[in-house]
Design a protein around this nucleic acid. Structure first.
Lengths: 153, 153
DNA sequence: TGATTTCTTAGTAAATAACTAGGGATTAAA
DNA sequence: TTTAATCCCTAGTTATTTACTAAGAAATCA
């Protein structure tokens, strides 16, 4: 039940872009430096985010990435599901192909539990957007807590 | 963010024991047959459940396993965390060792999100116990839905 | 005594995660 | 117009984790 580095690095990168929203393209090199991860790997994470229209890119020298829309329009849920797939504890709550392993016409006592878990996770991540994170960050900066993001990858 | 087979098989096995609560020891062979998994593997899952005092065993011929306490006293959360470890999206919300990767004296904008996810999952799984599942199962059996547990592993 | 069962540990194969590497395309600036 | 900086894409590699399989010892009932 752990998030992979894809989701974690990707969320941090998106938060980085949110902090710099409105300031033109931010290069992956600079994000990678701040987060101590490789540019090559970050490229692989930003690619699906671009295809999902969460960021847009500017190519060439002095190019980079920026949020495609305002921070408050991008939820943590959109970011994480783009990078990790559905935040569901099992495939059976997500796959709705009739011919799958599980016959969905039947009632399953364990599936209802997994559905509740899925709903609760979805509810949390969809209720938080990048603007919330930015506000949270700036608030805690002001209240003398010097660093408001830990060095955890 | 998926549960592994450990949690899924283990929960189904515990539900099986709950359905047969009060009827003496149930052999792993019979559980393994009903769920179409190997006895050897189930043994590895039931072992931690026994050490966590969720089931007790009777050794020898005609032996088997039974719930250690009443079904309503065993939560889905207790079962899943025994088999999967804490249902947390990251290690940083669970490890409280001061010398870990992450300096916990600092405020982290991503960590607070992971904590909220953790809390919401924990809240769901701790609110459901085996008796709930049994009641749910029997209710749906009565209402003409023949099979109330799907063959999903 | 023999069959059945729990209990334990070691090993293994497959899948997934987490990158690394490299090269092409684009563009700003020198 | 060249060069450096950047995005973009794909293939390959390594490490870790998952999901078992295997086998044998210990206990107990018939």
């Amino acid at each position: 039940m752990k998030l992979s580095t894809r989701g974690r690095y990707g969320l941090k990168a998106m938060f980085d872009l949110a902090l710099n929203y409105g300031e033109g393209p931010i290069s992956l090199t600079s994000i990678a430096e701040r987060q101590a991860v490789s540019v090559n790997y970050l490229e692989q994470l930003i690619s699906p985010l671009r295809k999902a229209n969460l960021v847009k890119s500017v190519r060439g020298a002095q190019g980079g990435y920026m949020l495609a829309v305002e921070p408050q329009l991008i939820t943590v849920g959109a970011i994480l599901t783009t990078l990790e797939g559905p935040l569901a504890p099992t495939d059976c709550v997500v796959i709705d192909d009739a011919d799958e392993i599980c016959d969905h016409s039947r009632y399953c006592v364990t599936k209802v539990i997994y559905e509740k878990i899925y709903e609760s996770i979805t509810s949390v991540v969809n209720s938080i957007n990048l603007q919330h994170m930015v506000d949270d960050y700036r608030l805690n900066q002001k209240s003398m807590i010097i660093e408001s993001i830990c060095e955890c990858k």
